[in-house]
């Protein structure tokens, strides 16, 4: 078994907070406000990020943007090649997305396959006006023609590396670390 060893720490708690603040401003600016806007986080770590963005947007604009939770397991394109079926969790989008401006949130943008699955999942829920993508980290190596509208940090990586995003809501700490296989 290869072991993963931390190589470099890209962001700490303050770094993540600053990036969230910047992206919240960008989202408001690009969309000229928050009308018809909804945030949808991709399980797992896209969900706390979406909530943090919603909190920040409320702080800045005073408006409440609904947050939905998307589980993309049933839309994965690798189900037949996995040893075991991954655990399916609930998708919780308690509002209509018809005609909405959707801000889709994920922690790391890599091959683009998760986003492809998420787009399909959203489309199955209704017809939004448009979908924009937020990624805390873009590490490159795209396998599909997908790009993020808002990027916290661009991090050139090798395929042998792994980007670990840890958030207090899920991991008891806030940090982004590059891991290397030894």
């Amino acid at each position: 078994m290869a072991e993963w060893k931390p190589k470099a720490r890209l962001m700490d708690s303050d770094g993540i907070r600053r990036v969230i603040t910047r992206m919240a401003h960008e989202i408001i600016e690009r969309n000229k406000g928050t009308d018809d806007m909804v945030l949808i986080g991709i399980r797992r770590r896209g969900v706390p990020l979406a909530r943090r963005l919603a909190d920040k947007i409320k702080e800045i604009e005073g408006s409440v943007v609904p947050v939905g939770v998307l589980d993309i397991t049933l839309y994965r394109d690798d189900l037949t090649t996995l040893g075991r079926q991954p655990v399916v969790r609930q998708t919780e989008v308690a509002f209509s997305i018809e005609g909405k401006r959707i801000i889709l949130v994920d922690d790391v943008l890599f091959t683009g396959r998760t986003i492809r699955a998420a787009l399909d999942a959203i489309i199955d829920l209704g017809r939004p006006r448009y979908i924009q993508l937020v990624a805390l980290v873009d590490r490159g190596h795209r396998e599909l023609p997908i790009r993020a509208d808002y990027v916290g940090k661009n991090v050139p990586t090798s395929r042998r590396e792994e980007v670990a995003v840890r958030l207090t809501e899920t991991d008891d700490t806030d940090e982004v670390v590059i891991m290397e296989k030894t």
Binding site: L74, Y75, V88, T91, D124, G126
Partner: peptide, 20 residues
């Protein structure tokens, strides 16, 4: 039973279909 929970959400959708 836990796995059936998310499936019930799909049945309640307008488009009752996932590509799984």
């Amino acid at each position: 039973l836990d796995t059936a929970g998310p499936m019930k959400e799909i049945i309640k959708r307008q488009i009752k279909k996932v590509p799984t």
